[in-house]
């Protein structure tokens, strides 16, 4: 097309916050499908603890944007029951930490019902989980527990890093006939980015190469993909050409994209906020070690994960407990220059 209409130009530059993008996805899904409803603690007139649901209750009413009692196990089970009988519930767990109270229903029920019943049921539910550190919320409101769920067959686990992906992936999740957990980083809610109008989908299970490079591969998701992309810019100024992969989905994981990158760069670093041991980095490292991409490695794989500690309250300590941009820079320099 040679010319763009004014509306298209506006759409092309339109920016929304991550929270607004999620709200827009919810509105689109609820407009399009009567079976979709949002429920959770304080998602109604309060607008959600992080303002994500905002005015949705005024647009869709209290029958479709439902405040619930503080009963995480109960509401997770309610999502399962609604999903297996024809609805498409979207459940907000106020802080992802509180999902520990709902583990039974998500892990024992939602993830297994289809399989246990011989394929005769579907559980099309979405659980939205605000997670991550950086807000001074301390040890019980700051965790990154996504790897726990990525260990469970029957669940899908996604971690979008941008407003664009948050909207497109949430719409994919609502459409998915399986239980999907979407971990939304609290620090991302106010970040802005281009978000197209209308309905579009970002597929679950497909990583994005955010920056192509030759010297090393850095894999991260959610806010770590953002920090990694920022770090890669600075590395470029220093002459280090990093390839940045935004994982986006943990289960299913897009291993092919990672392996292809490792074959090209010969160096791999995995950055994640969850506790380092037994985490996402371990899994990706092991997958590489088990594959032919292993033969292409010129240096040991580097895992940059959260410290072996509950998240502290003090801001200096809190920052020190999870990878920051400068940590990524330092680790990438060591890896790229071979002095790891």
């Amino acid at each position: 097309m040679s010319t763009l209409t004014e509306a298209a130009v506006e759409s092309a530059v339109r920016e929304l916050t991550y929270a607004e993008a999620i709200r827009e996805a919810l509105a689109i899904a609820m407009e399009a499908d009567e079976r979709v409803f949002l429920f959770g603690e304080d998602v109604g007139v309060y607008g959600g603890a992080f303002g994500v649901s905002g005015d949705l209750v005024h647009r869709f009413g209290t029958e479709r944007v439902i405040d619930t009692p503080i009963s995480e196990l109960g509401i997770a089970g309610a999502a399962v029951g609604a999903a297996i009988t024809g609805m498409k519930p979207v459940l907000e767990i106020q802080f992802s930490d509180f999902v520990t109270l709902a583990m039974e229903q998500i892990v024992n029920q939602a993830a297994k019902i289809r399989f246990m019943f011989g394929g005769k049921a579907k559980v099309p539910m979405v659980v939205r989980l605000p997670g991550g550190s950086g807000t001074g919320a301390a040890a019980q409101h700051s965790q990154s527990l996504e790897a726990w769920f990525a260990h469970v067959p029957g669940l899908k686990v996604i971690q979008p890093s941008s407003p664009h992906d948050a909207k497109g992936m949430l719409l994919s999740a609502i459409d998915d006939p399986n239980p999907v957990l979407i971990f939304e980083h609290k620090l991302l809610y106010k970040t802005k980015g281009h978000v197209p109008e209308g309905d579009y989908r970002v597929p679950i299970g497909k990583a994005a190469v955010r920056r192509e490079g030759r010297d090393l591969t850095i894999v991260g998701s959610s806010i770590m993909a953002v920090r990694t992309a920022a770090a890669a810019q600075k590395l470029a100024e220093e002459g280090i050409d990093a390839e940045v992969i935004d994982l986006r989905s943990l289960r299913p994981i897009d291993f092919d994209t990672i392996a292809a990158s490792v074959r090209k760069t010969h160096r791999l670093m995995v950055v994640y906020e969850g506790v380092k041991t037994m985490g996402i980095g371990a899994e990706i490292s092991a997958m590489i070690a088990e594959s032919d991409a292993f033969d292409f490695l010129d240096a040991p794989i580097v895992r940059l994960g959260g410290a072996e500690v509950p998240l502290p309250y003090n801001p200096v300590l809190e920052k020190a407990a999870v990878p920051q941009e400068e940590d990524i820079l330092a680790a990438a320099r060591r890896l790229a220059r071979g002095d790891a």
Partner: peptide, 28 residues
């Protein structure tokens, strides 16, 4: 499931919250 039996459950109390969702579904 086709016969309206949404399943036995190996977890004690597991069906109770699920029933709430079924009730919400019936109402909606």
């Amino acid at each position: 499931v086709d016969g309206g039996n949404l399943g036995a459950n190996g977890i004690v109390g597991g069906g109770l919250p699920i029933a709430v969702g079924v009730g919400m579904s019936i109402k909606a």
